[in-house]
């Protein structure tokens, strides 16, 4: 079943085009990542889908309703993790999570959510006193307290240290296993690769590639670079069939091949190629 569908989505600010005809379909239970440089239109897109922004054009349906007109009951089925929020600074983590639980018809257990988000030790601390990463985890806790069917995460791990990021990924995977549909924006490629079942690359308000992390931008079929060293020096060869080349090299008894490397394009290579930021 389709949870998010957008056709020809458009948005500009004072004549400046931010979203220039985006089509998007996300099925129930999917983890979908929107990837793109800053200012590409990721946040505008996600905020239109969340009902935070009006769109200038296009047809949008999120959980079966138009986000521009949907009401309280629809909002109760969403979880939104904002990109920047510094609210509730004087409240404790536990107070804030409990308070927001009271907004929803069927919330999760607040103490459990605090624990799942790795905040058990900080439950009694004022939000003002938290580090950036802990603060983001509070945002996630508030995003999932209402037991959402669909969770929006806008650059959720910005400012996390590597360990916090791994923990956060584990949390997102757990939510996905429980059947939560997740739409996230990120500019970390490893994050998209680790979490997303499908992803789309946005540049200048348009989707320029879409697929799985393994296949996007022709990654699966792109040529690989094989490098090695033998008696005659260093060699480098581009091939669409690296396995055959390696087999051929190792079969030649007259050469002592060393430093054999096969380099297939990383998601980062594909991404940089796509957004045209590589020489």
């Amino acid at each position: 079943m389709t949870v998010i569908s957008a056709r020809d989505l458009r948005k500009s600010y004072r004549g400046q085009v931010a979203v220039d005809g985006i089509d998007l379909t996300v099925a129930r239970g999917e983890v979908f990542a929107l990837l793109g440089p800053n200012g590409a239109g990721k946040t505008s897109t996600i905020e239109i889908l969340e009902g935070h922004r009006r769109r200038d054009g296009g047809a949008v349906s999120v959980l079966g309703e138009d986000p521009g007109t949907a009401g309280r009951r629809w909002r109760a089925r969403l979880g939104i993790v904002l990109q920047t929020a510094t609210d509730a600074a004087e409240l404790t983590v536990r107070e804030t999570v409990r308070h927001l639980a009271g907004y929803y018809p069927d919330p999760r257990d607040p103490d459990e959510v605090v624990a799942v988000c790795g905040l058990a030790e900080k439950a009694g601390a004022r939000i003002r006193s938290l580090s950036g990463g802990q603060r983001r985890r509070v945002d996630v806790a508030l995003g999932i307290i209402g037991r959402p069917e669909l969770l929006f995460l806008d650059e959720p791990t910005t400012g996390f240290d590597p360990e916090a990021r791994r923990e956060f990924w584990a949390l997102i995977r757990r939510l996905a296993e429980e059947g939560t549909t997740i739409l996230l924006t990120t500019h970390y490629l490893d994050e998209a690769e680790a979490l997303a079942g499908r992803l789309a690359v946005i540049s200048r308000g348009r989707i320029i590639a879409e697929g799985t992390p393994q296949t996007i931008g022709g990654r699966a079929t792109a040529t690989a670079t094989v490098t090695w060293r033998d008696g005659t020096g260093e060699h480098r060869e581009q091939t669409s069939d690296p396995v055959a080349l390696v087999a051929r090299l190792t079969a030649r008894a007259d050469l002592s091949v060393s430093d054999l490397r096969v380099h297939s394009p990383s998601l980062e290579d594909v991404y940089l190629e796509l957004i045209g930021e590589r020489g």
Partner: peptide
């Protein structure tokens, strides 16, 4: 129509939303 409702109103939740006064 700008908003084409794809799935209709799915799962009209049986659970009631907390009242405005309570919240």
């Amino acid at each position: 129509q700008p908003g084409v409702a794809a799935g209709g109103i799915a799962q009209a939740s049986a659970v009631r939303l907390p009242s405005t006064l309570r919240v």
